[in-house]
Design a protein around this nucleic acid. Structure first.
Length: 269
DNA sequence: ATGGTGGTCCTACCA
C-alpha cells in the first residue's frame, strides 16, 4: 500500500484549523499526526476533519497542555496510548493501519521540552525529559513490539541530534535540545529497535535542516536560527519503505503559524 | 547578558 503522512506540532489545533485546512488542500496527506493539540479529547475539532475526509480519529487530549492526535483517511485496526513517567501527560498515541501482514503501527510522540537548564539536579523538567526517553528506550526494546514490529515513529522529539540539525552546534551545546546527554538518550531510543532516521535517509546529514524556528526572532526566516526537533523514524522491517520526505518550511510563514513546520513523508509498504 | 513571542484560560505556567 502507498501512504502519505504528515507530522506537525500544531501548537493548538483549534486555533490553527485554517492552517490544517490549507495544508490538506495543498498536500493531501492520508494521515495527519499532530502534537500539542492543547485541548481535551472532547474538544478536538472532529467535524471539520471528517469533512476533509479524515473519518478515522485517535485523540489523546489534555486541557491546556500537550495532547496528540492521529487523523486518517485509512481505517485503523487498534488504537492505543501509553502513559510515560506516571505523570498523566498526553504525549503518545498509536494506531495500526492496513491489515494482515501489511499492517503497520504508527506511534506519534510529543517528548517533554525539558525546561531551560540542562541539569537534572536543578531542573526537574530536564530530568523528566531524560526519564521519558529512557522509558521509550525500554518500551521499544521490549513490549511495544507486541503490537507490531512493523512501525513508524513520528513526532516532536524536542531533540536536534546532529550538528547540522541546529543553526550553530557550538552555540547550542549547552542549550536544552542539543546537549550531549540528550543526544545520547535519543540515540538509546534509536538503538533500542534499530530505528532508521527516514528524514536523514533522504536529506544528507551534511545539509543543514530545521523544522522549528522560535517565535522570538524578529524575522525567523532571515535569522534562520532553526533546529530539527521533529522526526520520522522507521523500524528495520520497513527500511527503504519511505520513498520521499519534505519539510514544508513555507507553512512556518503562513498566517498565525505554529513555530514548527510540518514534515510530509510518503511510504510504499 | 537579557529578553525577545505566543499558547491556554484568567493567573501563572509552559514552550
Amino acid at each position: 500500500m502507498d501512504i502519505s503522512l504528515v507530522t506537525w506540532n500544531i501548537n493548538s489545533v483549534r486555533l490553527r484549523m485554517p492552517l490544517v485546512e490549507r495544508f490538506v488542500a495543498e498536500f493531501n496527506p492520508d494521515v495527519l499526526c499532530l502534537q500539542e493539540i492543547k485541548c481535551r479529547t472532547g474538544d478536538f475539532p472532529e467535524k471539520p476533519l471528517r469533512k476533509m475526509g479524515y473519518e478515522h480519529l485517535a485523540v489523546n487530549g489534555q486541557a491546556g497542555y500537550h495532547g496528540v492526535a492521529i487523523a486518517s483517511r485509512v481505517p485503523f485496526g487498534e488504537t492505543f496510548s501509553r502513559e510515560f513517567c506516571g505523570k498523566g501527560d498526553a504525549r503518545h498515541i498509536a494506531v495500526t493501519l492496513g491489515s494482515g501482514g501489511d499492517a503497520i503501527t504508527v506511534h506519534n510522540f510529543y517528548v517533554p521540552a525539558g525546561g531551560d537548564e540542562p541539569d537534572r539536579s536543578r531542573n526537574e523538567k530536564f530530568g523528566h525529559k531524560l526519564d521519558f526517553l529512557t522509558e521509550m528506550r525500554d518500551w521499544f526494546s521490549g513490549s511495544a513490539k507486541e503490537h507490531s514490529d512493523r512501525m513508524v515513529l513520528v513526532g516532536d522529539l524536542n531533540i536536534a541530534p546532529l550538528e547540522t540539525d541546529v543553526w550553530s552546534h557550538k552555540q547550542l551545546l549547552k542549550v536544552v535540545s542539543h546537549t550531549p546527554i540528550e543526544v545520547e538518550h535519543l540515540g538509546g531510543v534509536q538503538a533500542s529497535h534499530g530505528w532508521h532516521d527516514a528524514v536523514r535517509a533522504h536529506i544528507p546529514p551534511e545539509e543543514q535542516l530545521y523544522t522549528w524556528w522560535s517565535y522570538r526572532a524578529k524575522d525567523w526566516r532571515a535569522a534562520n536560527k532553526g533546529r530539527r526537533l521533529d522526526h520520522i523514524w522507521v523500524s528495520p522491517k520497513l527500511g527503504g519503505s519511505c520513498t520521499a520526505v519534505e519539510v514544508v518550511k513555507d507553512a512556518r510563514g503562513w498566517e498565525k503559524p505554529s513555530d514548527h513546520a510540518p514534515i510530509m513523508a510518503r511510504f510504499t509498504i
